[in-house]
Design a protein around this nucleic acid. Structure first.
Lengths: 193, 193
DNA sequence: CTTAATTTTTGACATAGATAAAAAAAATTA
DNA sequence: TAATTTTTTTTATCTATGTCAAAAATTAAG
């Protein structure tokens, strides 16, 4: 890491859940590397096991999978959020997800090996993971509820609420596949209000 | 705890993810209490903050919420699974979920206070939570996919796959609300095959 | 700038699944 | 075991959203 100011972004993120000792900060700084991706660039390919986690410093990433030849968006990650192929990273096996950059991206990158090292040596990292996964789990539960008992319009409103800050940066087609509706339907919903 | 054999069930569960030291086993045994619930009994009420987690030893529990006066099943927990109101437990705030017993239930009960104590003193408990939440997160992702791009029949098949062992113990109406389809539709799907 | 490629919008039509109401079956209680 | 309540099934319509096709608008490339 050259830019010590930049890394503060991810430190601040950790510190929302845990206290970072100087030792841990040093260990993190030694292991985190910076990567950049051009808009449209593929960051992770489903034919590979995912062994990295990206923390976005600037830009927008998307996890998606292919169904019947079409890209189905699974989730979007923006500034100060992680992006990876969760199950692949956890189980060290293949999963269906691709990751690409919707905008030019600057990201911090932590390898699985380094993550494991940190979990083994810093219990507070385990806590961080437990707490932040709890938050994500909550979002998923809300999303499941939103998927089940709402009209297409309500689904879209729920999307607008959860991706409040970044919804305008995501193309309509990607939003439609994320919501499980057709882009025609979404276009009509937008036209009405 | 009187029955030392019984508590092995939950020890074995922990040991799927972590090693349990004798110290931790003792601490757990001191804190876990047994509770029983009759079929139909309300275990957790949405007007209360959830401050307990139940690990089911025998029977079947359900988390649900009320929408337009109807009970919408969120998830089911059977033997060797946890049941609680996740976000309420995590944030110490109210959430929408009720929990009831679909069958007579015998469960181990751990209070939030005791959970916190264990997290604070046993880093391996943090790891256990991280790993088991990862598994749950994977299930949720699959469920979200299943909710979005499949017909009612495919949703039902996905339910049968995920609740393979216990699907026959869950009433049709509860399954329908879990899947976000009407019970009439589910009844027709069952009739066909 | 001009052309090509991609994304979004619009229109016509089809259909899976919702809704409503009532009968049948199963489970619970007296 | 009869009576009551709850759950499931069936029948008949209705509607939101999907599908297909093509035009318009936007973005990217030469």
């Amino acid at each position: 890491m050259k830019n010590t100011e930049k890394i503060d972004l991810i430190f601040k993120h950790f510190e929302r859940h845990i206290k970072l000792s100087d030792t841990l900060k040093t260990e993190l700084a030694q292991r985190i590397i910076c990567k950049t991706f051009k808009k449209g660039e593929l960051v992770h390919h489903a034919t590979k096991v995912c062994n990295k986690s990206y923390f976005i410093q600037k830009g927008l990433m998307r996890a998606y999978f292919i169904k019947d030849g079409k890209e189905i968006s699974e989730y979007f990650s923006a500034e100060s959020e992680w992006c990876n192929s969760p199950r692949s990273l956890r189980t060290r096996q293949l999963d269906i997800y691709y990751i690409d950059a919707i905008e030019d991206v600057e990201a911090f990158c932590l390898s699985l090996v380094d993550l494991m090292y940190l979990f083994d040596h810093f219990p507070e990292m385990e806590r961080y993971a437990r707490l932040s996964m709890g938050t994500i789990l909550g979002h998923f539960m809300e999303r499941i509820t939103s998927m089940r008992f709402t009209t297409a319009k309500e689904k879209y409103n729920h999307f607008l609420a959860t991706y409040c800050d970044i919804h305008h940066r995501i193309p309509l087609g990607m939003i439609a596949s994320y919501l499980g509706i057709t882009q025609e339907t979404l276009s009509r919903i937008r036209a009405k209000k």
